[in-house]
Design a protein around this nucleic acid. Structure first.
Lengths: 192, 192
DNA sequence: AGGATATTGTAGCACGCGCTACAAGACTTT
DNA sequence: AAAGTCTTGTAGCGCGTGCTACAATATCCT
């Protein structure tokens, strides 16, 4: 009796597929970037070989597209989780919350990847614009739900805050956080 | 008399140096991107060999840093050129002008490169953050000069408009120009 | 059980990358 | 003119890239 399966539990291998591959791949991409990622490191992060990635995705471009789609989905889910308790009562408060949310260390990899997606989108890389569009749409929908209840124009307000927020985040990442802060002080949000 | 310099004018070769190399290199980078650019294509764009680029710059990283600095300078100069005639009379008008300026087709390569610089800045690539910081500072200074004369707070206002403008431009590049437009309609700029 | 099909490993190809060794030419200085 | 420095060309190294050919194994259907 040669002990055919000594420890079946810990080493049960779920069949490798796009679905099982994408999460570890996304982790790697969030850490090391999307453009610079190459097949062999990606494969190692997912516990496989480049050969297998190509088997399951066909070629690198489709891999990247799938990753972008998947990450956009994860981002949406993360947003849905992050609904703060209690509605803010003013637009200013609402914006402050989002900015605070976006500056959490846990969000940093997302932020870094986000600007890479924007850049790829600007350059016209395949799949980037779609992912960016989707992520912004989700962000916008989430923001609308977060608007103050008595806001006279929640839809427009959300778009306004989104614009302001993205501008602020960008300025923050290039070392002009202070500029952004001072800018917000000169908006109608601070001096109604 | 062997005619020491038969046709000095048309074929005078200015000595190759960083200064003479950078302009054609910048042109290539504006067209093809910074991250993906490699030595041999860059060299061809400047009419030399990769060997020479390394001779004059030492290694690729210093080349890229020099390019970023140079491009930031060019951008500043372009801004100084682009001072519209007559001051705008309202912040809204001021923002409209800038956005119009930024959407000119001639500015597109700059825009595309800009988001790449932001992305590199977010990822911490060497030289990117400095360049981005410089470019934003220039933009801000330029904007302050463009503010309405009777503005109660030109410094703050410029920072506010800068934030709004960058947010709008970003949304535009990812296919949400409409979202940005509607956002601006819900700001104090449109409904004072 | 046996044959078809799906999955995986090994090895390698052709290419582009940043960079370097070496030497030939150009120019300047003595 | 000789010697030395500055500039440039040629050739190539070692590596990582996306991708493929081929074969071995695992899995499923009859």
């Amino acid at each position: 009796m040669p002990m055919p399966m000594p420890m079946p539990m810990p080493t049960t291998k779920p069949p490798m597929s796009r679905a099982t591959l994408l999460p570890p791949l996304a982790v790697h991409v969030l850490e090391h970037g999307l453009g610079g990622a190459s097949l062999r490191p990606l494969a190692k992060a997912a516990g496989t070989s480049d050969r297998m990635l190509l088997y399951h995705f066909g070629n690198k471009e489709t891999l990247v597209r799938a990753l972008l789609e998947y990450i956009a989905g994860v981002y949406s889910a993360a947003l849905d989780m992050a609904v703060g308790e209690g509605r803010p009562t003013t637009r200013q408060q609402c914006l402050a919350r989002i900015l605070e949310q976006g500056r959490k260390p846990a969000m940093r990899p997302f932020m870094v990847l986000w600007w890479e997606i924007v850049a790829g989108s600007a350059r016209g890389l395949s799949g980037y614009k779609e992912a960016a569009e989707e992520m912004i749409a989700r962000q916008l929908a989430w923001l609308e739900k977060q608007m103050p209840e008595d806001d006279p124009d929640p839809a427009g307000g959300a778009r306004y805050l989104l614009t302001l927020m993205e501008g602020s985040l960008m300025l923050g990442t290039v070392g002009h956080a202070r500029t952004a802060r001072e800018g917000l002080l000169a908006s109608d949000l601070s001096a109604p």
